[in-house]
Design a protein around this nucleic acid. Structure first.
Lengths: 139, 139
DNA sequence: GTAACCCTTGAAGTATACTTCAGGGTCAAG
DNA sequence: CTTGACCCTGAAGTATACTTCAAGGGTTAC
C-alpha cells in the first residue's frame, strides 16, 4: 500500500493533483489508514498514467472521466470509445485549420512589414485597422 | 457621441465586454455625461474592431494591449510590431504541430478499433493503459 | 526528542475572457 | 406619469486544471 506521496512520485503528478482528481471523481477515494492517511493500491499509479496519457493525446479531464466510465462499464462497446476519439479528432482538425488560417494571415502581414520604419506605417497595424474588409471568415 | 449600447451594437460586442475592456485598460475610460453615462467618440467603434480583428488572428487581450501601446508610441518601430506577430506565428506553429501529432496518434488508435466488441478489448483504451511504451515524446 | 518531512482539511488563488447578478438610477414614448 | 429600454456599480460566477495557503497532526532518522 502506498502513501499519496508515493503515488504522486511514481505517477508523475503532485499530491495536490491526486487529491484534486479524487475530488473530481477521476480516481476513487482510497481507504484511509488509522492516522487518516490515504492508502493506495499500486494499480492506482497506472490509473494516473492512463489519465496523463489521455491528456497527452488531447482529452480533457471531463472527457477522461467519460472514458473511465466506459472502461468500467461491461455493457459499453468499443464503438463508444471510438466515437469519443473521433469527436476529439475532428475537434483537433478544426483547431488546426483555424490556427493555420490565422497563422497564414499573420505571416502575410509580417512579410509586408519592413523591419524598420515607424509604427504609423506598419502594415500589420494597418491591416488590423482595416474596415471590415479582408475579413472573409463568415462566422 | 455614442452611448455604450451604440458602441456595443456597432462594434459587435456587448456592453459588459466594453466595460470589461475599459477595466482592463484596452480602451480608455471615456468622459461621462451629467447622468454618469459613458459618452464615446465614434472612433471607439474602430478601436473595438481593431481588438476583435487582433483576436481573430490569435492575439490575446494581453498581446493586444501591447500592440495598442506600440501603436500609440511614436518612438516604436514597425519591427516591434513585427516581432509580436512573429512570436505569435511560431507559437501557433508549435500548437499546430502538437495538435497534428495528437490527432495522428488518436487516428491510428481509432483505426485499430473495431466498431463492435466490448470495451475490455478496445485498442484505444489498451493504448492508454500501456506502460510508458509507445510514448515517443521526449518531454 | 527534535528536526525534517509526510499527511490532513477547506478555502482561496491563477490565467483567460468574459458573463451574470443584485440593486438601483435615467430616458424616451405614449 | 408610467412603462420599458437603457445606464450605473461592485462583486461573484463560468470553464479548465490545477496550485497555494493556512493551520495543524503524524512519522522517521539520528
Amino acid at each position: 500500500m502506498l502513501n499519496i506521496g508515493d503515488v504522486a512520485g511514481q505517477g508523475g503528478v503532485t499530491v495536490e493533483t491526486l487529491r484534486y482528481y479524487e475530488r473530481e471523481g477521476l480516481i476513487e477515494a482510497p481507504d484511509r489508514d488509522a492516522n487518516g492517511y490515504r492508502k493506495y493500491a499500486p494499480e492506482v499509479v497506472r490509473q494516473i498514467q492512463f489519465i496523463k496519457r489521455a491528456q497527452d493525446v488531447g482529452f480533457t479531464l471531463k472527457d477522461i472521466k467519460e472514458l473511465l466510465s466506459l472502461k468500467a462499464d461491461p455493457g459499453a462497446s468499443c464503438r463508444d470509445v471510438r466515437a469519443r476519439a473521433e469527436g476529439k479528432i475532428s475537434e483537433m482538425g478544426e483547431k488546426i485549420v483555424m490556427l493555420q488560417r490565422m497563422k497564414a494571415v499573420l505571416a502575410d502581414w509580417a512579410a509586408a512589414c519592413p523591419d524598420a520604419g515607424p509604427v504609423d506605417q506598419c502594415p500589420i497595424l494597418d491591416a488590423l485597422d482595416q474596415e471590415t474588409e479582408g475579413h472573409h471568415g463568415s462566422r
